[in-house]
Nucleic acid binder design. Structure first.
Length: 392
DNA sequence: TCGCCTTTGAAGTAA
DNA sequence: TTACTTCAAAGGCGA
């Protein structure tokens, strides 16, 4: 299996820390989602109501999470080990024997599945559809075989012009995303759900003429709108955009957790009747940690392919390109204005979870145990976080 | 109208 | 190399 020249260490899972969910309260076995749901709902609703109270009371659940951090690396190593195994298995023929039932790619229209893959129609596993009617993983679909040809004719000739940027052209990706000959131009009616506006309009179209949801106009909130809702945008809207051409922004490929969120968000919303994303994301964060290694691995693998495809399509793109696209956060501005150069910074980050005795009072007292989060009065003069997770 | 919230992970920057 | 920052999605909410 070809690895990106960059290596990046992002083989399947993340290189850096991955919080272990295996601990006293949460054993390795998968926790039934339904078991979460009611508790999630109750907790979150309760916490939403009693937010201020929550922030003042450390809780045992948070302490449990502290303990989890300790086992983190052990799990990480094992996890990587497992992922390597998965990778090797897939090397011999990606998806010939899907390691993960219900693997998101099974939602792909059949013509876009590898020859030997299981037909989606034969798969009984239900995958939650996106809130906008698009599966989270359909962002991969616009890619075509052409993108993986050794010398893609559509690729800009300056793909290597960007200083220091050269992206490996993985050739056997085509095996992952076997598409009908002819590429995008011959996208079949099975992709009728695919946005025609994206196919036709200049907005959201890769310079090569190939549409990709990662390309959006560069204008604040519209980025989001275009990215997803744009899938269903009427051509009329596109016409307006044509009149005001904006330089398209190529968005970052989604990481494993983001893919998971996209897939599961609708389900959580349905189960919990919650709409506030901040709360939903906390639930999803918990569920993410509750996933088995195998379940997480499929998202890591998927994210890796996303990145590979992204690199194939946009070889000169860098995450740096999008830096500064968003306006600077108020919190950061505030931090700048209040920062005392001589004051100790981010004691949680400095001393880590294993040296909590070195933490300042606020950091020790506040239930939030994320290693790099900071508390008001100590590391960063930020607004206290809305704590939905004190009961988690 | 737009930034914040909240999550994890990838990638970038700075020291 | 380490520490830290930014951005990716989402939608309600507040300024």
């Amino acid at each position: 299996m070809p690895q990106l020249s960059s290596g990046g260490g992002d083989d399947l899972g993340a290189n850096d820390e991955m919080i272990s969910f295996k601990d006293e309260g949460e054993q390795e076995e998968k926790i039934p989602e339904n078991a979460f749901t009611e508790r999630d709902l109750a907790d979150l609703k309760s916490s939403l109501v009693n937010e201020s109270e929550i922030n003042q009371s450390p809780n045992t659940a948070q302490a449990v999470r502290r303990g989890q951090q300790g086992e983190h690396r052990v799990f990480q190593d094992k996890h990587r080990e497992h992922l390597d195994g998965v990778s090797k298995q897939q090397d011999g023929g990606m998806y010939k024997s899907p390691a993960y039932p219900g693997y998101p790619f099974l939602m792909l229209p059949e013509p876009y599945l590898p020859n030997n893959s299981v037909s989606p129609s034969s798969n009984k596993v239900s995958v939650v559809q996106q809130s906008h009617g698009m599966h989270a993983l359909t962002s991969l679909l616009p890619y075509s075989n052409d993108h993986f040809s050794p010398s893609p004719p559509h690729l800009p000739t300056d793909m290597s012009q960007k200083t220091g940027v050269h992206r490996h052209q993985s050739q056997d990706l085509s095996g992952y995303y076997s598409l009908p000959p002819g590429g995008v131009g011959q996208i079949t009616p099975s992709m009728s759900w695919f946005p025609h506006s994206l196919m036709l309009g200049p907005s959201g179209v890769h310079p090569t003429g190939i549409p990709h949801p990662a390309i959006v106009p560069s204008s604040g909130k519209q980025e989001h709108d275009q990215y997803d809702r744009g899938m269903y945008m009427k051509p009329q809207v596109e016409v307006k955009r044509e009149k005001e051409p904006k330089k398209p922004v190529i968005k970052k490929p989604l990481n494993a957790f983001m893919l998971y969120m996209k897939e599961m968000r609708a389900k959580v919303i349905a189960e919990c009747t919650l709409k506030e994303s901040a709360a939903i994301n906390q639930i999803l964060g918990r569920r993410w940690h509750a996933l088995t290694r195998e379940e997480q691995a499929k998202y890591y693998e998927l994210a890796r392919k996303e990145r590979q495809l992204h690199m194939q399509l946009y070889p000169t793109w860098s995450a740096r390109d999008n830096y500064g696209k968003k306006k600077r956060r108020k919190r950061e501005k505030q931090q700048d204005s209040n920062t005392d150069p001589g004051s100790p910074k981010k004691c949680r980050a400095r001393f880590g979870l294993n040296q909590q005795t070195d933490w300042c009072g606020p950091c020790r007292c506040v239930p939030d145990v994320r290693p790099f989060s900071v508390q008001p009065g100590c590391c960063r003069p930020i607004k206290p976080p809305r704590c939905f997770s004190h009961l988690i």
